[in-house]
Write a protein that binds this DNA or RNA. Structure first.
Lengths: 153, 153
DNA sequence: CCTCGATCATTCGTATACAAATGATCTCTC
DNA sequence: GAGAGATCATTTGTATACGAATGATCGAGG
């Protein structure tokens, strides 16, 4: 018995499981494509998508604890730790003791970090547009609305 | 000058770059949510999404070289190597020499691998449905159509 | 046949991703 | 103000992900 006959055999229905049509596979491929566009389009800033997300969030917030930055960018504490370490190593953010909480440290952007975000913002906008290029404007609105619900449900 | 004023200053337009609205961030969150649903729902098979993708593809194809399996599942050679190693270690697929090409090896499912796919297929289908649960049937069709174009453009 | 570009698989290095465990500290409640 | 449960950050271990380099082999053209 071959795989495509399995659902029929099990449920007396036509086969429906094609990997290429599964939403998980498509989400992964679309995310993969975006990451490739990002790395190609980010230019001299040489940031990864997650480094950009963390940096732009620190600049927007002004300062934040590491765990809070992770929550804002959807990274768990173990993951944000490495991202912050690399941004610190490049002199884009700083870390100082939090006088109000001795467990926590306060992250803040450096002048270089702020300048890099300002210089890179047009590229980031272009990356989002290039990612959405397969869709026309009306389709983009619909897609983003549905994707938002898929992401935060 | 604060970040939210940058686009206005640069382009004389209202600020538009909010990380939470960027398509890359939303794709990542949606993929993240799917992975969590998968790991929760895959049950006793205890497979990762990529292990499932590789296994189900080997079962469907009957046999395939490692690089070909990687192309079919969108994994590069370095990545598929580890996935195949773990599936072999669990006795779900086998590897043999390719008589027609001494560079390549032939991967094939074991009886246990085929049986695991058969037993797990209902869970995999349920996972796809649970992932799409935030959308009603009409929205699902639209979303999948647009996502397909975003993935393969 | 012979060589040159392509392909197969591996390895190394770097960067997410997340579960789980840990130690320090905070906060809430009694 | 003391203990319990929550939170901050780190570390360890496993699993993708991919660029780049490598060595072996293949296939096409001359």
């Amino acid at each position: 018995m071959v795989l495509k006959d399995l659902p029929r055999a099990l449920h007396h229905q036509p086969s429906t499981y094609a990997l290429e049509d599964q939403v998980g596979h498509l989400l992964r491929r679309a995310h993969q494509r975006h990451a490739a566009i990002f790395l190609e389009g980010i230019g001299p800033a040489a940031l990864t998508p997650m480094q950009w997300a963390a940096l732009v969030t620190v600049v927007r917030e002004g300062k934040a604890s590491q765990n809070r930055l992770g929550r804002l960018t959807a990274m768990d504490p173990a993951t944000i730790q490495g991202v912050v370490r690399r941004l610190r190593a490049r002199g884009l953010i700083t870390r100082s003791a939090d006088p109000a909480d001795r467990r926590a440290s306060v992250l803040a952007p450096t002048e270089a970090g702020i300048a890099l975000v300002e210089a890179t913002l047009p590229a980031a906008i272009a990356i989002s547009e290039a990612t959405l290029a397969p869709l026309d404007p009306a389709e983009r609105r619909i897609f983003l609305k549905l994707l938002q619900r898929m992401a935060f449900a």
